[in-house]
Amino acid sequence: AWPFFGQYMEKLLVENIAPSIRASNTHLQTFTFTKVDMGEKPLRVLGVRAHPGTHKKQILLDLNISYVGDVQIDVEVKKFFCKAGVKGMQLHGMLRIILEPLLGDVPIVGALTMFFIRRPTLDINWTGMTNLLDIPGLSSMSDTMIMDTISSYLVLPNRLLVPLVPDLHEAAQLRCPLPRGVVRVHLRGARDLRSKDRFMGGLVEGKSDPYAVLRVGTQVFTSRVIDDDLNPTWDEVYEFIVHEVPGQEVEVELFDKDPDQDDLLG
């Protein structure tokens, strides 16, 4: 299974992430992945859960995966003679595999569709990061922002389709299926938040300037900031497109807005 997952990652990086990176910044038009090696340490499957499909020709599998490996990925931006890379990575998350369509003959399954239900936890050991961030237009970025961007490419609605039979008629539909629906979220407010603001070297306790971040897959909404309030009321409404049921969830995080780095409230 590990070589198969390595092919998945290589295909994702080369065919999806690299073109998006090149299109995101004029200075990155010569960005390429020069080496993708997932190493010899395979990921571990900590658990498997099967769900009934939406129809009889489909099986849904959720794999709780954990990867702490010796991956090596090298990148190059030829325009600036810049080389950087990754040596070592950790990846933890829930990977969904859809077996569809089911056939009455070998190989029994016509295709595999893979994606992460939610953003996986990603920790990367960078090499040459300072060189990469010296490129014009990237100086304001951080390794955390880059990891968040990479994580988003692994999550719905992005999918990797692996056909197992030639001339699969359902390929286009499996690669880009119609959304399952829309969920409307009414963000009312919060109560008894923690005070994160400190003054006079921490001697005086203030309040917090809370805001909320709501996420479903790659869809993210951020509420307005309410100053000096531990019981904020936002009364805002958001709508998310739902691509997969069961599995997708609404994630809500609260932060305290600060001039330098925002604090997580919960």
Rank of each mutant, 00 (worst) to 15 (best):
N64T: 13
P157Y: 08
K11T: 15
L193S: 08
D123C: 10
K87I: 06
R194A: 13
F116S: 03
V77L: 11
T218E: 04
L13V: 12
C176Q: 15
D167R: 04
I150S: 07
I135E: 02
P166E: 08
I150T: 00
F240K: 00
C176H: 14
F5E: 09
L156S: 00
T54D: 14
H51S: 00
L160G: 02
A23W: 05
L12R: 12
V225Y: 03
P259M: 03
G6E: 07
N16A: 10
R118H: 15
I135P: 08
I226S: 02
D256Y: 01
K196L: 05
D263A: 09
A171K: 11
M94A: 11
L112Q: 02
L161I: 06
P3Q: 01
I21S: 04
K57M: 09
N64W: 11
I98D: 00
F199K: 13
R224P: 01
T233K: 08
P42I: 00
P107T: 02
E10H: 08
G69I: 01
R194G: 13
D105I: 12
L60E: 03
G189Q: 03
D62F: 04
V162S: 11
V106D: 13
V213N: 05
L132S: 01
G128N: 01
A172P: 00
Q58Y: 01
A172E: 13
H55E: 13
S24W: 00
I98L: 10
Q90V: 15
Q72V: 14
V162N: 05
F240H: 04
F115K: 03
T54R: 14
E236Q: 13
F240E: 06
K78T: 13
G201Q: 06
G39S: 05
G206D: 09
V162M: 13
G47A: 06
F116M: 07
V109Y: 02
D37H: 04
M129S: 13
L132M: 15
Y238I: 05
R175I: 12
D228E: 14
F115L: 11
H51M: 03
M9R: 10
F115A: 10
Y238V: 00
E10C: 09
L95P: 03
P107V: 04
I226K: 00
Q72S: 13
K11H: 15
L60Q: 00
K11Q: 12
V162E: 05
M129P: 08
E10V: 03
P42M: 00
Q58C: 15
S139I: 10
E239A: 12
H169I: 12
D209M: 06
D105W: 10
F4D: 15
Q173T: 14
N25E: 01
D209E: 03
P101T: 01
L193E: 01
R22P: 00
S140I: 08
N16C: 13
M145Y: 12
F4P: 01
Q248K: 02
R191Y: 01
G201L: 05
L95V: 06
I21L: 07
R188M: 11
V45T: 11
M145E: 15
E170W: 01
Q72C: 07
P177R: 05
I146T: 06
E76L: 11
M145T: 12
G202N: 07
A190N: 06
I17A: 02
F31M: 10
P101K: 01
M129Q: 08
H55L: 03
V75C: 14
M114C: 14
S20V: 06
K207S: 15
G137Q: 05
F80Y: 10
V237M: 11
V182H: 07
I98M: 07
E253L: 11
K83I: 10
F255M: 11
T113C: 05
I150N: 04
